[in-house]
């Protein structure tokens, strides 16, 4: 079943900010086997000029997944999540994500289009502090396999 094009242009905002935790940064860095002292050792991060631990660049994935905003399971959208493959990802960071950041996640469905037998669902994310500072943007392309009309 094709995806519902009426969702193109809709914007979704998380109902609560995401507090970036020091231990979460350590756990995420450990999971990707990133041993940088700046992500694990507070003194090292401060010596390097940061106010707290520094998140690896793809930590924003955890922010977006633990505070999901794109309604991928809304029956109205018509996405069968078992057919979904992640095909493209981009992160643009104005500055690194630092422990203690409170980030409000929002996303706009930028496009739904056919690509061969598949459909592409393109979402554009913003990560803004509760103080209104834009920290990062992201673009995610998911393929819905075999659902093109």
């Amino acid at each position: 079943m094709p995806l519902n094009r009426d969702f193109v242009g809709r914007r979704f905002v998380a109902d609560a900010p995401f507090l970036v935790g020091r231990e979460h940064i350590r756990q995420f860095a450990a999971a990707i086997q990133d041993n940088s002292p700046l992500s694990h050792d507070l003194e090292a991060a401060k010596a390097a000029g940061y106010v707290d631990l520094v998140a690896p660049p793809t930590f924003l994935t955890a922010v977006a997944l633990w505070r999901p905003v794109v309604p991928v399971r809304d029956p109205q959208l018509g996405l069968d999540y078992s057919l979904v493959v992640h095909v493209e990802q981009r992160y643009s960071l104005r500055r690194p994500v630092i422990a203690g950041d409170e980030l409000v996640v929002s996303a706009t469905i930028a496009d739904i289009r056919q690509a061969g037998r598949n459909e592409l669902l393109i979402s554009e994310y913003e990560f803004v502090t509760t103080g209104g500072e834009l920290v990062a943007t992201a673009r995610t392309a998911l393929a819905s396999r075999g659902t093109a009309a």
């Binding site: 860095a29 940061y50 520094v54 998140a55 493959v85 095909v87 493209e88 990802q89 104005r94 690194p96």
Partner: peptide, 11 residues
Amino acid sequence: PGSVVDYSVRF
């Protein structure tokens, strides 16, 4: 780890 300002891939 804070040195990356833009990063994109296709899987």
